[in-house]
């Protein structure tokens, strides 16, 4: 029984809300139109300052843009190096001092140091051609 009346009331409320919103919008638009010249000028400057950001390319963007060219250049360089082969690559000869140093740091060398007495005795003793102590 009350349903049509409720519906009418709700429709009335919604219509009043809509009228209120419309009036509020009119008031707001009026206040926007009344903005002074100084505010408009500042807004204009702010907008152009923001758009300047668009003209400055990001560093990531720059990298991405040049990535294909860089990749192909690197591939060409590697191909050339492979084709020329290792002829031009100089053999790297390690200095003797470095080799000796590595020998000293070797595990076996450490064992030798532990049995120093044995090795000094071995050195003092005479060995025959078959390796027997004479």
């Amino acid at each position: 029984m009350n349903k049509p009346r409720d519906k009418e009331r709700l429709t009335g409320v919604a219509a009043a809300d809509a009228r209120f919103a419309e009036r509020a919008k009119e008031q707001f638009d009026g206040s926007v139109d009344r903005l002074d010249a100084a505010a408009l000028s500042r807004l204009n400057r702010a907008r152009h300052a923001a758009l300047d950001e668009l003209r400055q390319p990001s560093s990531v963007g720059q990298w991405v843009r040049w990535m294909p060219a860089t990749g192909i250049a690197a591939a060409v360089l590697i191909t050339v190096m492979v084709m020329r082969g290792p002829r031009d690559i100089e053999l790297i000869v390690e200095p003797v001092a470095v080799t000796d140093f590595e020998l000293l740091l070797d595990n076996e060398s450490l064992e030798m140091l532990e049995d120093l007495e044995f090795y000094s005795w071995l050195d003092a003793a005479d060995l025959d051609t078959y390796g027997n102590v004479g």
Partner: peptide, 26 residues
């Protein structure tokens, strides 16, 4: 091509910001 796109995008952004800036300020 990227330069042309940037110019077009800048023009669109300029128009958009000019439309909203006063209401946004209020």
């Amino acid at each position: 091509a990227t330069g042309a796109e940037t110019l077009q995008r800048e023009s669109q952004l300029n128009q958009f910001l000019a439309e909203v800036e006063r209401r946004a300020l209020r």
